[in-house]
Design a protein around this nucleic acid. Sequence first.
DNA 1: TATATATTTAGACAAATATCTAAATATATT
DNA 2: AATATATTTAGATATTTGTCTAAATATATA
Lengths: 89, 89
Amino acid sequence: MNALFKALNDPTRREILELLKDKDMTAGDIADKFSISKPSISHHLDLLRQAGLVVSVKEGQFIYYSINTTVMDEMLKWIMQFKSSQKNK
Amino acid sequence: MNALFKALNDPTRREILELLKDKDMTAGDIADKFSISKPSISHHLDLLRQAGLVVSVKEGQFIYYSINTTVMDEMLKWIMQFKSSQKNK
DNA sequence: TATATATTTAGACAAATATCTAAATATATT
DNA sequence: AATATATTTAGATATTTGTCTAAATATATA
């Protein structure tokens, strides 16, 4: 949970997820979408991976990143607890 | 959105929300639940308020805090966008 | 095998964050 | 009016975070 909230607490990382929502992308292609250095994007990708929000697969000299939404379930559940307890008031 | 993710990116603040889920509480009563100084808790409450996650009402010398879950809707929607696009694969 | 391309790792640095103590403000009580 | 209680504000400090450049690693190509 901590890693998850931490990963999402950055606009660049959230944008990366929105890119990956549509299609898998290589680290380089992702970096090209931002005006931030490649090492910085690499670091963002690392944090997203630590949170389980993305998965990486090496193909030759490229590394493909894809989104993994299953880890979001725990977070959704956590948020929903508040919504459902609010109902009974 | 930024303020919202920022506010939730801290275990203490998330715990405060869980306390307020059950009942409204004064700043002091909230602080007593943690081994952190009152000024620090006051600061956490301020960040929660900035995000719209809590509302405060002054009653005499006390300040009551209550949770507001409506701002979570935007976040839920943001997360759900990923879940629903995942479905079509 | 030498060079080019893709990506990460290492190390530095400025900005943001969580925490503290001390002081300020506001209300209640004696 | 003086004192006690509840809370915040101010200012300081250590840690974390986002970013950078330079270097390292790994694969592809000439």
